[in-house]
């Protein structure tokens, strides 16, 4: 892969995981966004978007409880998308390639948080002498430089040399394995949805999950229409319970 593209991937991954801006990483580090940018680079916007969205769906339900990253959608995307676009692999295999990197990314995040402990202890000293400029650097500047080194380097190296290795592996991959990856790509989104149910699924409101599910399964309602119905149902329950509360007060 050419140097410029590899450098671009390294920079995109750095921006996507720098965490500058709360929740901004969900956009700048989204595999869909990577798919768009890299699709433009390779002149295959549609394919880039489709691979990006397929990878995104696997990680759609991820929540960072207590700041712990359960999987790294950005690393999964930034490795798989350019290699897939360059070697012309199909979407299923790209997903199979993405998932191991989604796990590997966790270690990069853990390294970052371990090094950050050092900056907190530094900042404590600066607080004693009320040097808020230095506290600012400890909170933003130094960790950002560290994360640049931690993120740019591995992605640059893997995307630079990975495509050739992947092409030679792909040539010997039997169809059975590709079918297996296709099953994985189909099942893995269930993981994210299950996690969200863990967070918000109280027993007495679980039927709403099934209403949504069977609305699509039997009536083939599309996602936006489901969102419209869901919003109305949620609004109705909200108004009703407010009314009930007022009755209790009176």
């Amino acid at each position: 892969m050419n140097l410029l593209v590899a450098a671009l991937c390294g920079i995109l991954y750095f921006i996507g995981t720098s965490r500058l801006g709360y929740g901004l990483s969900q956009a700048t580090g989204s595999p869909i966004f990577y798919g768009l940018i890299l699709g433009l680079v390779y002149g295959e916007v549609e394919k880039g978007l489709i691979i990006g969205a397929t990878i995104q769906l696997i990680y759609i339900g991820i929540i960072f409880t207590g700041g712990n990253m359960p999987a790294d959608q950005s690393l999964a995307g930034i490795i798989a998308i350019p290699i897939a676009l360059q070697t012309g692999m199909n979407v299923e295999v790209a997903v199979g390639l993405a998932v191991p990197f989604g796990i590997l990314g966790i270690f990069i995040d853990q390294l970052r948080r371990i090094t950050n402990s050092y900056w907190v202890s530094k900042a404590e000293k600066y607080a004693q002498v009320m040097d808020t400029r230095k506290i600012f650097h400890c909170a933003i500047t130094y960790p950002t430089i560290t994360i640049f080194l931690l993120t740019f380097t591995p992605v640059f190296v893997i995307t630079l040399f990975g495509a050739n290795a992947v092409t030679s592996i792909m040539n010997i991959l039997p169809q059975g394995i590709i079918d297996g990856f296709s099953v994985a790509g189909g099942i893995l989104p269930a993981l994210g949805f299950a996690i969200i149910i863990m967070v918000i699924g109280k027993r007495e409101i679980m039927p709403y999950f099934f209403i949504g599910f069977f609305l699509v399964a039997y009536l083939k309602v599309d996602v936006m229409a489901a969102a419209a119905f869901g919003f109305c149902v949620a609004a109705l329950t909200m108004f009703n319970s407010i009314k009930q509360k007022q009755k209790e007060v009176n």
Partner: peptide, 10 residues
Amino acid sequence: LFMMGALSST
């Protein structure tokens, strides 16, 4: 939950 149901199915 409603959306998770719809998304799971889709």
